[in-house]
């Protein structure tokens, strides 16, 4: 029966998801335990920050610019009909700072840095490099995972702050080009309608998104099985899990901070 088969499939999927959530929770515990006492490999942290920042800054800046512009374009019909040019910056800025900015930047960061991290750790896992570390009495969690988690958390937060600025510039540029709204109007529209609270709302979210992306990407990386095919599959699973986590966290943070 089709009904029975669907149920079996759903059941298997539910078990798989539960196992993954459990695995990620376990890894979170291990990371926290490795931070007590906080003996951090500063060198690895700095190296990862540098690499991750280099790799993702261009795409994040480009995405943020378009995101800011898009919000202006979406609010344009409304603004044009009402002739309320002073509202263009409000709508675009509010949407970018609180929602669109952190989410799009988070998704891009997950695709660039998170996916890369999964692929790297996955390759290390299938070529037994993690066992190589353990054989040298070096804890892979402490040496490999913790610096990566911290670096992603710090870097995504920093990128979101930078991205917010770029997005506001993008909004102003598009408003000027498409709606003929001059810079000063846009500036005052931002300044009068946006509060630091809107900005921090997005930054809190980026910290949580960074943690989620880091933990999911590391988890799927170190649990890779089955060579090159397994690495591809793990990257896929990691970005999907990160996207779901971002949307869920967004929901809970929005409600919790209301």
């Amino acid at each position: 029966m089709i009904g029975e088969r669907t149920l079996t499939l759903l059941g298997a999927r539910a078990i798989a998801v539960t196992r993954e959530v459990g695995g990620i929770a376990l890894m979170t515990g291990q990371v926290l335990r490795a931070l007590l006492p906080p003996r951090l490999d500063g060198r690895e942290l700095v190296r990862n920050l540098h690499r991750m920042g280099n790799r993702s800054l261009p795409i994040v800046a480009l995405t943020a610019f378009f995101a800011g512009g898009l919000m202006v374009v979406q609010s344009a019909p409304f603004v044009k009909r009402l002739g309320a040019t002073s509202l263009a910056g409000w709508a675009a800025g509010y949407a970018v700072l609180r929602e669109i900015g952190p989410i799009l930047i988070g998704l891009m960061f997950s695709g660039r840095v998170g996916a890369n991290n999964t692929a790297e750790l996955g390759t290390m896992t299938v070529t037994e490099q993690l066992d190589g570390l353990r054989a040298l009495a070096i804890d892979p969690i402490r040496y490999l995972i913790v610096p990566r988690v911290l670096a992603m958390l710090i870097m995504l937060t920093a990128l979101t702050i930078i991205g917010d600025l770029v997005a506001l510039v993008g909004a102003a540029v598009v408003a000027y080009l498409v709606l003929d709204i001059d810079w000063r109007t846009m500036y005052f529209s931002f300044a009068d309608n946006l509060t630091p609270h809107d900005f921090f709302h997005g930054v809190y979210k980026s910290v949580a998104f960074g943690a989620a992306i880091a933990l999911t990407s590391c988890y799927f990386g170190v649990t890779v099985k089955g060579g090159a095919v397994g690495v591809g599959r793990a990257v896929n699973a990691a970005v999907v899990a990160a996207a779901v986590s971002i949307m869920l966290l967004d929901f809970f943070i929005t409600y919790a901070t209301a």
Binding site: G111, R112, N116, A119, V126, A228, V231, G232, V235, V239
Partner: peptide, 16 residues
């Protein structure tokens, strides 16, 4: 496996 990982990453970022 590295190449496949790279391709997958590039696909996510590129198509997004």
């Amino acid at each position: 496996s590295e190449g496949v990982g790279w391709a997958t990453t590039a696909a996510v970022v590129g198509s997004s």
